[in-house]
Amino acid sequence: MIFPGATVRVTNVDDTYYRFEGLVQRVSDGKAAVLFENGNWDKLVTFRLSELEAVK
């Protein structure tokens, strides 16, 4: 189960963010908004829950 605050990895091989890890900001309607941070940039991207896996 994916909840806000969880760290997730993108599993969709066709996505630009494949294998990126980010922090879930919100979850609704089968989608999750994931925040990616890297140095001087932040990006908030929405994914279907089926495209994400929780990082242990």
Rank of each mutant, 00 (worst) to 15 (best):
A33N: 07
N38C: 13
L52A: 00
V34D: 00
K56P: 14
D42Q: 15
V10N: 01
V45K: 08
S28P: 01
D14F: 13
D29M: 08
V45H: 06
V55K: 04
L23S: 08
G39Y: 08
K31H: 13
E37H: 14
Y18V: 02
K43C: 13
G30S: 05
T7K: 13
L35A: 07
V55W: 05
T7H: 10
K43L: 13
F36D: 00
V10H: 01
M1R: 11
N38M: 14
N38K: 11
L23K: 13
D14T: 11
L23T: 14
A54I: 15
K31T: 12
E37I: 14
A6I: 12
A54C: 11
R9L: 06
T46L: 11
V45L: 07
T7V: 13
A54P: 13
L23R: 11
Y17I: 02
V24N: 00
I2Q: 01
D42T: 15
V45W: 04
P4L: 07
K31G: 06
F36Q: 00
F20T: 06
D42G: 14
A6F: 08
L23Y: 07
T11C: 08
N12H: 05
N40Y: 09
F3Q: 10
T46Y: 12
L23A: 06
A33M: 14
E37K: 15
T11F: 04
G30E: 06
V24H: 00
G39V: 09
Y18K: 02
V24W: 01
P4W: 05
F20K: 12
Y18T: 02
S28F: 15
L23F: 08
L52F: 02
R26N: 14
G30F: 06
A32T: 02
D29V: 05
A54E: 09
N40I: 10
D42E: 15
R26S: 15
N40D: 12
K56E: 13
R9Y: 06
Q25A: 09
V8F: 01
D15S: 15
G30H: 06
V27D: 00
N38E: 10
V34S: 03
F47C: 03
R19S: 11
V45A: 06
V55C: 06
F36K: 00
V45D: 02
L49D: 03
F36P: 00
T7R: 14
F20P: 00
G22W: 04
A54V: 15
E37T: 15
E37M: 14
I2N: 01
V34E: 01
N40T: 12
W41F: 11
N12D: 07
F20C: 13
D14G: 09
L35S: 07
R9C: 06
F47P: 00
V55D: 03
E53D: 05
P4G: 04
L44F: 06
F3C: 10
F20M: 15
R9M: 09
T11K: 08
D14V: 08
A6Q: 13
V8Q: 00
A32E: 01
T7M: 12
F36R: 00
F3L: 11
V34A: 00
V24Q: 00
S50N: 11
S50Q: 09
E21P: 04
R48H: 14
A54G: 06
V27F: 04
L23N: 05
L23W: 07
V45P: 05
V45S: 03
E37P: 11
A54N: 10
V34L: 03
Y18Q: 01
F3I: 12
A32V: 10
D15A: 10
I2H: 02
V55A: 05
E51H: 08
F3H: 10
D14E: 10
N12A: 09
I2S: 02
F47S: 01
S50M: 06
D29F: 07
F20G: 04
R9V: 10
G39L: 09
Q25F: 09
Y17M: 08
Q25G: 04
G22I: 04
N38G: 11
A6T: 12
D29R: 08
S50V: 08
V24K: 00
T7Q: 08
N40K: 12
Y18L: 02
L52N: 00
V55S: 05
T16G: 08
L49W: 05
V10D: 01
W41M: 12
K43T: 12
T16L: 13
N40H: 11
P4E: 09
R48I: 08
K43I: 14
F47Y: 14
T46V: 13
G30K: 04
N12E: 05
Y18F: 10
E21M: 09
V13S: 10
E53I: 09
V13T: 10
A6D: 14
E53N: 04
T46D: 08
N40C: 11
L44V: 14
R9K: 08
S28K: 10
G30V: 04
E53H: 06
F20S: 08
R26H: 15
G30N: 07
F3G: 08
L44K: 04
E53M: 09
